[in-house]
Structure formats: structure tokens, C-alpha cells
Write a protein that binds this DNA or RNA. Sequence first.
RNA 1: GCGCCCGUAGUUCAGCCCGGAUAGAACGUUGGCCUCCGGAGCCAAAGGUCACAGGUUCAAAUCCUGUCGGGCGCGCCA
Length: 590
Amino acid sequence: MTLKHHLHSLFTHALVQLQEQGVISKEIFQGDIQLERARDSRHGDFACNIAMLLAKTVGKRPRELAEQIINHIPAQNEWITKIEIAGPGFINLFLAPHAYFQVIDNILTDKENYGHSQMGAEKSVMVEFVSANPTGPLHVGHGRGAAYGDALANLLTVAGYRVHREYYVNDAGRQMDILATSVWLRYLELCGETITFPANGYQGDYIWDIAANLHREHAQALQHPVSEVFQNLPLDAPQGGDKEEYIDALIERCKHLLGEVAYRHVFHEGLGVILADIRRDLEQFGVVYDHWFSETSLTVPENFVQKSIKQLQAQGHLYEQEGALWFRSTTFGDEKDRVLVRENGQATYFASDIAYHLNKLERGFNLLINIWGADHHGYIPRVKAAIGALGADPNCLTVLLVQFATLYRGQERLQMSTRSGEFVTLRELREDVGRDAARFFYVQRKSEQHLNFDLELAKSQSLDNPVYYIQYAHARTSSVLRRLADSQWIWTHSAATLHRLETPQEQALIVSLSRYPEVIESAAVAYEPHQLTYYLRDVAQHFHTCYDVHKVLIEEDEALRNARLSLLVATQQVLRNGLTLIGVSAPEMM
RNA sequence: GCGCCCGUAGUUCAGCCCGGAUAGAACGUUGGCCUCCGGAGCCAAAGGUCACAGGUUCAAAUCCUGUCGGGCGCGCCA
């Protein structure tokens, strides 16, 4: 039980007693008690405002009620030295130093498990994140989703949830056809043909790489005369036509000329290369998935899309209009109804998405978390509507939005567009500023906050990035322990000598360490890994201050030396635990 | 036009969910600290109309309403 939980239970106990005595009615007090760390040490260690909240409805003055509450808190509590009423009616708790020393014991005992919580009660949660279309390399926008999603999944894991990480691979649909066609056209160029590349094709260099593979394996076998390829097509955008119509016609031509088998080969060449690249990229970023879920698998071999449509139909939520099949999502709070099957017989992306979410539900997750780019926010009501229509609770789905990161190089704002091929990839970012800095920087801001990422700043002025500050603290602890190993001394942890840690700097550091379990719970419940980054900075700062003032490896006082070493090892453990959660390394040396 | 997000120190951001005591931090600026375990560090100072206007409250950066400013979304696209 954490320090805070313990204190919390004392208040609950006191208030329940007051209820039994009829001082407070059951309606007024439902059991929520806010217990907060006091910001000012003159206010003690923890402060509670419950008396002020209840005073009016109880019909007493806040300070009077506070008095009664205090009287029901066990007097000889081993951890509390003083309870006082302050200001308008705060109840301030002052803790004994050994209440905190207990924390050091806990950390040294629990090690990498310190701070873990049972909050999640083994509930299973799926976190689906990144899920970028496999039409090109991940860019810096995806990086933020990756860093945030992975840190969140880690947080939920240590908060007691069973977490499943999943990447939804959009390997069906028109974008993939555009990719295949783009690859084939580049292949034709490698065969020596001269063509005009479509405005709406994928223009990145990686398309050339895939085409080169194709050319290496098949030489001219997939070649067709350019005259046939471009015969009788509508005008492309630069010629005054519609780029969408043009690319669709080109896709059809491509399928027709290559035939089913050869087209699928080109298609899978592109998909395979890009997906493997994305997977490798994420692994190198420290993000590993439990499952890569293929959109195609929703239709082959079993057609989940048809199944979910039938299920909706059976419930009477579908209707036909103008040749299309519609889902009456307005019944479930959406602002307009949505098409599931188009006039041309093709299912929409939304139909696949319904099937995917039905599939998720059938796999038995208690909680579904989707991490999406903020530009998809308008999509949330219809997915929730679908879940409701399928008979499940829409609240089992939580969609967390991540704002795009805007990259700057100094004053220059970098444009990102997959189509134009001028984006900055996640890989480039990693190679530029390093994995640790990138992951920390991404997760440092609240996810719905716009992120301005200045590459020059992150690189040239590394002081601006607190990740170094925290890692340096960890490296320093390691350095001291290396020194210890070289000495004739041996560290023995003894609870008895911890009371020697009595200076303000040491006390402040211990208090900071004691907050870790609270931060884990708070960050997990709010889905806010950024809380952890602020916390880790706080720990590092208290450590640096302590380190500057008090030497650890002192010769003359063995008991004090051991006590300080215990504190140092505990600090190292907390820093390492926290950094691990956000995917940042805890280096022994820098 | 409708919907969602954002507006806090020169800059980048916490704090807002769940109202509470003197609104915090980093960078930058200014001034100090290296016979000592790693100075990638420490100590200190200056810097605020919490976008604006109302409202609720004993108490508002926080809750409600409106206004202004910035971003995004409103397809038989994905």
C-alpha cells in the first residue's frame, strides 16, 4: 500500500465513523476524499480539503467539522506526527521521517516493480496505435503516435492492466492500388520507358527502390508498351483534368494489362517492402507490437465485413437509398447517416472499420483504446455509433487524439506530404536527434497539444532537452557505484541507519521518490505519460541538488555512507523505472 | 455555418478533468559556486491583466455563458 493510500484510508475511516454517528449523512459524503501533496512545506506533507467541501451541507463551519474529523483519526498513527487545521479549513498532515524511510525500503525490495499498481485489476485493454497506411515510410507525425501509444501501453501495464498492442494494417483499398500503380510506373521507367508520372501517384524515392527490386527480379517481364498504358485515359490534373479520376483509370489500366496474378505480385512487392520497413523502423524506435492486424484478413477467409453488415441489418439499422447501403448512425448520436456499401458495390473504409471493431469486441477486450491523429476526430461519433448498434457499450472505446507535430528547422517550417515525397521521416528524425531525445520530446507534451519540434534546437542545444538532465542523474548514480566497486567498502542496506538522512536536500529527494506510485496511477488513469516526464525531471533535480551538497562515499562515517548509498540506489531505481516506461534508456555512462 | 482542440512569464510548456492557501518549470537574461564521488551540475535574482467580458461560489487559471484569436474536421476518400 502506498503512502497516500494509507493516509487516504485514515480519512475514510474517520468520515465513516462520523456518518455512523449521524454527523454526516450518507447522501452528502459518497466516499470521495481529495488528499493532495502540500505545495508548501509549511502546510505539512499532505493536505485535505474535505471539511470545506462538506461544511455547508452539513451545516457546520469548516474548521469545526475539520476538528471532528481529526478526532476520529487514530491518534497513535505511526506515520503522522502532527495534524493541524489551517486557513479556511484545510487539514494538514505532517509525517514522521520514518514514514518516508519506509519508501526507501520499498524501492530496494520491489526494485523494477516499485510503483506498480493494481488499479487495472487485470482488465484487458487493447491499445491500437500508429496504424499508418503502408504506402510509405513513417513520418514524424506517426512518431508522436508511436511514442505516445507505447508509453501509454507501458503505463497501463504497470498500473495492473493486461495490455495488447496492435497495429491495424490498411492493406486493402484504393490507396494500396495507387501504391502498386506507382511502383509499376517507376518500373516501366527503369525498363527504359519515358512516362509522365501521375499527379496523384506516390512520388517518394522509396517507390524507385521497390521498382528496382521488381526490375531486378523480373527484368522486362512485366513491361508493356507505354502507348498501351496511357491510351485513352482522362486528363490528369496538370492538363486540367481530375487527378482522382485519372489515377483510378490508370489503376484499372494497370490491372488490365498486368492481369490478376502479375498485378497482385506488384501489389505485394510494394506492401511487403514498406510494411517490413515500418516494422523495422518502429522496432528501432523501441516499439514492438503483439499483433499486426491485416485489413484483408477481415474479408479472407471469413468475411467479417459481411458478417457485421448482416448483424446491423438484422437489428434494422441499415437502409438502402440511391443504390447505396446506409447505416442509420444518427440513431446513435452521429450527425448524419453513413454509407457502408457504395453504389458501385464496394464497401467503404467505414464498413471495414466496423468489422474491425466487432472483431476487437469478439476477442473479449474490456477496454479498447485507439490513438488517432487529431484530424480524424470527426470520425469518432460514427465508430461509437457502430459499436452501440452492434449491441456493445460505446464507452468501452476510448479514442485518444494526438495533434500533429510541426517540424521546424530554425525559423523554417518544414512541409510534410507523403505524396510529394518531401516529408521528414521518423527514421531521419531518429538519426538526427537520437532515439532517446525523440521519444522524450514526443511524450513530454500533452498529446492534444500542438507540438513544435525544432530540429536545430533539439540537436544543437541539447541543454534544452531535459532528457539529458535526467539521464545524467542516472549516469551519476552509476558512476558512484562504480567507484564503490573499486573501493574496499561494501554497501549494506540497513533500515536502522536511514534516520541519518536528515538534511533538507535528502528529505526532499526521498519525498520525491515517494511520489512515484502516485504519479504512475495519475498518469495511467488520465492516459497522460507526460506527467511522468515532469516527475522524472523533479527526481533528477532533487538528486543533483543532493549530490552537489552531500558526498556519498565518505570515509569516516560508515552508517551515514550506507544510508546515502541506499538513497542513491533507490533514486537510480526510480529513474530507471520511469525512463523505461517512456522508452528512454537509462545509461550507466554518457 | 456547425462540431472538436488550443490561448498561462521574452520563448516552449505544466497546472484545468476533481475550484482552495503566495499560479509553477525549463530555455533565454543577470549575478554567484570547480583543492571534493562526472560542472551535461549547483545556488540566487528579475520576469504574469492566466486572451477578453460577464456569471456561479466563502473561494475561479480551473466550472458556466458570450466574444476575439489560432488549428483541425464536416465525402458513396482513406
